[in-house]
Design a protein around this nucleic acid. Sequence first.
DNA 1: CCGAATCCCATTGGATACTG
DNA 2: CAGTATCCAATGGGATTCGG
Lengths: 116, 116
Amino acid sequence: MKVFFKNDSSVDFCPVRDVFDRIGDKWTVLVMITLDQGESPLRYHELQERIGDVSQKMLTATLKRLQEDGLISRQLYPEIPPRVEYTLTARGKSLLPHLYRLAEWASEHMRDVKKV
Amino acid sequence: MKVFFKNDSSVDFCPVRDVFDRIGDKWTVLVMITLDQGESPLRYHELQERIGDVSQKMLTATLKRLQEDGLISRQLYPEIPPRVEYTLTARGKSLLPHLYRLAEWASEHMRDVKKV
DNA sequence: CCGAATCCCATTGGATACTG
DNA sequence: CAGTATCCAATGGGATTCGG
């Protein structure tokens, strides 16, 4: 596989950087996996509860960006009080296996590394 | 696959978080892939040149932590001037396929997303 | 219930100068 | 050559308050 670097002046994109710039933050992957583990669409507050230690600000920001990237979809039911459900899109689902494999690798290799 | 959350009080580790905490920063994955693409061990300055836009401070810090995690090894040849060579360890190599798959996914799905 | 807006702190990371 | 050390700017992210 070809990898592009910054001094490769002919190209303006680098898949490796791109993907980690997008999902390498603190919450994005966790939200996606939480949605995947939920057997059905999850509401805002359900997500917050299941993740357990995410602030409203960060959950909102993460959801918004995931939606902009087409990885999740947001369904608003204009009731009183409002209800909002989040689901993974096809694109989002296509990313998940790779994330799980990384997590598997981590549980095999990071156990002794962690200690910090 | 089982995923652990923070409110899962019985466990103190979460593979998903662990791995992204470790490799989700700006340079770690890039260094590993650069080492992998080099057909032989790479010296400090070669790494800096190939990556192109990494500062000395960050390259040094990234290499040190990769070494602490057992993902790369550092060989010092005490000559004048000194020569240092970096290689991927077996554990480091075992992680690479997963990173490449993520990069592949990115080049298929992030092209149109990127635009920001 | 689902956020938006603001404030503030901690961490990341870049530029530069110096050392064995 | 291969780093250290220091200073500083930018970003990430938490706590709190407010709105529809």
